[in-house]
């Protein structure tokens, strides 16, 4: 052991070995609940990874601008367990009932999402590339991207980005959606951004649609952030959320320069894609 021996008195030096011995004796018989540790880490880890996957879309395109403006509603709550890289809000309310993953349309493989998206794109717009491999998967997770697509569109005016995200709502989030003002479903916020004072960010459109009970189940949003137009449609449907977004920038970071003069999809075109039943009608085999 390298040590600062010059600074220690004889008593301090004697303490070093005594302290090590004391620690060793005191902790020798400590019982460690290894099985419980592993099981809880795996369960919590999978839940957090799902949460992170859901928030990849939220932080990716259209809401990138919105997040900058109303980050408190989106990411409010506990922020623990996030300094290793996974991001996003941790909603304590949504955690009062453990998240239970259920099979559903949110398990759609990325190739299937790409195929269905391609069929829905308007003429002269095409999906030119998308991420096919999950390079940051957890133990036990497939390296196949499941439930979301992030890719590049080519349009008449130039390239842009597209994201499709299919997310399961927890039982608790669905109950929260029923008891809140109807705009929040767990981590999914369907409220409109507040009035903005930033000259660089402009909310051009924000429209919501509610179901018969008054809960907001759809939001269409168009924002301009530093010259990039972000369009997003988010829909609560069949126990999950369908999210589609596009931007006239192929770079996934704030204040990136536009890659085209206009967005490859209009808000109406994007809404037609997001509301298509091709997403929610899919089910994993065996479910």
């Amino acid at each position: 052991m390298s040590t600062d021996l010059d600074d220690l008195t004889p008593d301090d030096l004697a303490d070093l070995d005594d302290l090590r011995d004391l620690m060793a004796r005191a902790l020798d018989d400590v019982d460690v609940p290894v099985g419980r540790m592993h099981d809880r880490a795996a369960v919590d880890g999978r839940r957090l990874r799902r949460r992170r996957s859901a928030l990849v879309g939220v932080g990716g395109l259209a809401t990138a601008a919105a997040v900058a403006v109303f980050a408190v509603p989106l990411t409010g709550g506990d922020t623990t367990a996030r300094d290793d890289g996974y991001a996003g809000g941790h909603n304590r309310a949504a955690d009062s009932v453990p998240f239970v993953a259920k099979p559903g349309y949110w398990d759609m493989p990325v190739a299937e999402i790409a195929s269905r998206l391609t069929d829905l794109l308007p003429q002269r717009v095409s999906l030119t590339s998308y991420e096919r491999t999950n390079t940051d998967h957890a133990p036990g997770e497939s390296d196949v991207v499941i439930g979301y697509l992030t890719g590049t569109l080519s349009g008449r005016t130039g390239p842009g980005s597209v994201e499709v995200m299919l997310t399961q709502l927890s039982d608790q989030a669905q109950r929260d959606g029923a008891v809140s003002q109807g705009e929040t479903w767990g981590d999914q916020d369907l409220s409109c951004p507040p009035e903005l004072s930033s000259p660089d960010i402009e909310v051009r459109t924000c429209a919501t649609r509610s179901d018969a009970s008054g809960r907001v189940v759809e939001r269409e949003l168009e924002m301009v952030d530093h010259g990039v137009t972000y369009r997003e449609v988010k829909i609560v449907a069949r126990g999950g959320v369908v999210y589609a977004a596009t931007a006239n920038s192929t770079q996934r970071k704030w204040t990136a320069p536009p890659s085209a003069s206009r967005n490859p999809l209009t808000l109406d075109q994007l809404a037609r894609i997001a509301t298509s039943p091709v997403w929610t009608s899919w089910a994993p085999s065996g479910s």
Binding site: R40, A81, T135, A138
Partner: peptide, 18 residues
Amino acid sequence: AEDLLQTALTKAYVAWPR
């Protein structure tokens, strides 16, 4: 200690490739 270890292991699980 159990809570702290749980937090560390959960983070390790999430970031296992790293």
